[in-house]
Design a protein around this nucleic acid. Structure first.
Ligand code: ZN
Length: 244
DNA sequence: CGCTTTTGACCTGCGC
DNA sequence: GCGCAGGTCAAAAGCG
């Protein structure tokens, strides 16, 4: 289970990809999100980038990664070694620009440096204490997302989530749900949305890293809600140009 | 009774 | 500056 291999049969959500960023098919991972996270080769890698483009596929150790060749078209998943004994926390940076920014390389020569906004301005400071706005950070938390073919929205990933919002997004017919980890000291969020083209596909996007172990430690093996639960890793695509 | 979900308002960023 | 779109808040409702 060392390296992941691409699966050409996987379905790639088109809306998730901007036309300017051609993406290879995502990686298929074994099964449940929980098992998925636990099968990442964290023991061998302090930090690695999972790439799934035709030229680079698999987990690449960060120092050996030739970022200059990857440009911004290579989706990458930055994985960090988790706390020993705990469930792995997978951190994911965005494609291209953010990856290069994360490792210190300069990605200004590619075409994605100017208009991307999620990470620009490392941390937004206070937004004015006059109103009810608090310190709101820019979304620079590590993220990763995967799509799951499942009939249920709530995937048992071992954590307890509380829904705090729901919004209808432009691209999709289905609303997007916003969840937050119920642990008080944990600020991990996740978004769950269904594909408009295929309502059976659920895209779950995690943001942030858990500071604790999963609450439901008993991973009941028979809890697979549907017999056909296929989980695929994709990279998180910044909506640089959401024009579909 | 405590926690979660719902849901509209509100805020921010961005494009025009 | 304005409008749109996405993200969050928080009060009310729902549920065990
Ligand atoms: Zn958490």
């Amino acid at each position: 289970m060392a390296y992941c291999v691409p699966n050409p049969n996987l379905y790639v959500p088109d809306q998730y990809y901007t036309p300017s960023v051609p993406l290879p098919p995502p990686l298929q991972l074994p099964c449940h999100p929980r098992a998925l996270l636990q099968q990442m080769p964290f023991d061998q890698l302090e930090e690695a980038v999972m790439l799934s483009n035709p030229d680079h596929c698999g987990l690449y150790p960060l120092p050996a990664l030739p970022f200059s060749h990857l440009t911004a078209t290579a989706p990458a998943i930055v994985c960090e070694k988790p706390t020993p004994g705990f469930m792995p926390n997978i951190g994911v940076e965005e494609v291209g620009t953010s990856i290069t920014a994360g490792v210190g390389c300069e990605g200004a020569n590619n075409g994605y440096s100017s208009t991307s906004t999620w990470w620009r301005g490392s941390a937004m400071s206070v937004a004015g204490e006059k109103g009810k706005m608090k310190v709101r950070r820019k979304m620079r938390e590590p993220r990763f997302c995967f799509q799951t073919r499942s009939d249920v929205d709530v995937l048992d990933d071992g954590y307890k989530w509380r829904k705090y919002g729901q919004k209808v997004v432009k691209n999709s017919l289905h609303p997007r749900s916003y969840f937050r980890c119920t642990q008080s000291n944990c600020r991990v969020k996740k978004r769950v949305e269904r594909l408009s083209t295929d309502c059976r596909m659920v895209i779950t996007t995690y943001e942030g890293r858990h500071t604790h172990s999963p609450c439901s430690d008993d991973a009941s093996p028979a809890d697979d809600h549907t017999a056909t639960t296929t989980t695929c890793f994709t990279s998180f695509i910044p909506s640089v140009h959401p024009s579909i």
